[in-house]
Design a protein around this nucleic acid. Sequence first.
DNA 1: ATAGGGTTAG
Length: 591
Amino acid sequence: MNLKNYLLIKFGGNFITKSFLLHSNFSTNRSMFHKITNLNHALNLFDEMSQRRPLPSVVLFNQLLTTVTKMKHFSTSLHLFNQMCSLGLPVSNYTMSIAIKCCCQLYRTKDGFALLGCCFRRAIAPNVYIFNALLDGLVLEDRILEAEMLFKKLIKQKLCEPDVVTYNTMIKGLCKFSNNVTALALLRLMEQKNCKPSIVTYGTIIDSLCKDKLMDDAFKLLNEMVYDKRILPDVITYTSLIRGLCNMGRWDEASKMLKEMEDENISPNVKTFTALVDAFCKEGKVKEAEAVINIMIERGEFPDIVTYNSLIDGYCLRGEMIKAREIFDSMTLRGLIPNVVTYNSLLNGYCKNLNIEKAMQMFREMAGKGLQPDVVTYNTMLQGLFQVGRCVDARKLFDEMHAQGQIPDQCTYGIVLEGLCNNRQVEDALSLFHLMGDSKLNSDIVVYNILIDGAGKYGRVNTARVLFQGLIDKGLQPNVRTYTVMISGFCQEGLLGEAKLLFLKMDESGCPPNDVTYCVLLQGYLKNQHYDDVVMLLQEMDDRGYTLDASTLSLLIDQIATGSLDWSMLKLFGKLVPKELLNDPSLCDWE
DNA sequence: ATAGGGTTAG
């Protein structure tokens, strides 16, 4: 079918007038491109345009390129760009900025810079739009240092005057790495340079502060925006703040914010509602989450895949797999296609319920639906397999992961090491660890914690000690867990002196012991009939406001009952026993 | 006449 008939059928005669088709220059308004709703329309139009002689102006091609790019068909855009070049069109700044944008959005910033080189060769002066696109690409690829370098270079070499978008992009990059301090410094810098911050500038930083749970700072910035700059918050700003409050369990304030935005005539959108759903689900409040979904539907906002995934994850975390499955089916009925995140939640749920067969079945089902398992999928399955002791299958899956081109991350590595340790394969865990050499994976305190714990548990306290020294030599900072597992290892071998020494070192090192550390040390003392320090430790716990866990408490009670410890110690217990344990019948039969 | 920036999931 030719273009003319196609357009006539699609849009009717009034839209495509004779003059439009006959006019050699396609002179028309831009609404023409707004009517293009799918890729095929655009491609047909491009073909039609490229066959006309003389060729339509590059502006028209640029408009078409923009349309395709806005549909996020970046590869197609680039393909069209190449064709434009082959046609000998005089590509402009505009064309170049779109092409560079496409490269960058495809995580091919390198090609974007290659196109910048083309600009110079073709004597097209790169402008702020082009540099902003490149900057955004670097940020997208987490190449924040290079982004900073480019930003500084723009200013120093006067390549272009940074505008509000340049600053916003740079601020986004900084916020991505929680560098709120520098982000705020940039905000001040732009004010100083007379570049007015926009709602995007403020919104970016406010969102980042909310993500870091710095709600006071977020509200401070909001006030500055509203009262100093006279910029009113929009639905995005409100959503960030509401999510921040919800994630901290500050529900009352969140609902106040919701009311405030309604008063300002700003309607919450899908993302706003989803923030509420997600926060409720993370707290296990799935009923409330479902209520939110009902409200949003009543108000004509429809839950999307993210909303459903949050709800499914909520049920999975509670182990309510039947309900999770129900939601999964109902979203499918609504025409939403489950994605890899959906599956990962379900896999996680089944694995946590130790229903590894069901998880395996769903895992295989993914491939049938054309879903490529990602690192999280493999991590979830590996953890599940190790948990039920299926180390051989875990190994097979790990190999499959490799074959599928999924690169294990720090999490994978931790799961494998922990899985091996828990299945009494500490040797294998250690050799894997040494095999990794001095990689980034081996400089993770979590990994050390796992191995020290594993070595300690299976009577290899020497190895644990070497690991502990090794991490310090590497310049890593032990955390409470590190100290605690090391102390636990010492206790297990009856090395109470060393345990105590390390315990005392914690406060000195600015890493005070927590309730777990105290319980571990107490258990070590009790099991080794070393009673000297017990009262002191209990007293310290009381001072620090810590409570005893069930197993330490029952050990203490046993020893009082057998007369190894003095009855007078009971006085201390009143404060040290958490309320929920006071009603525990298993602890009341010692009298 | 044509190009750019901030909010969602495991």
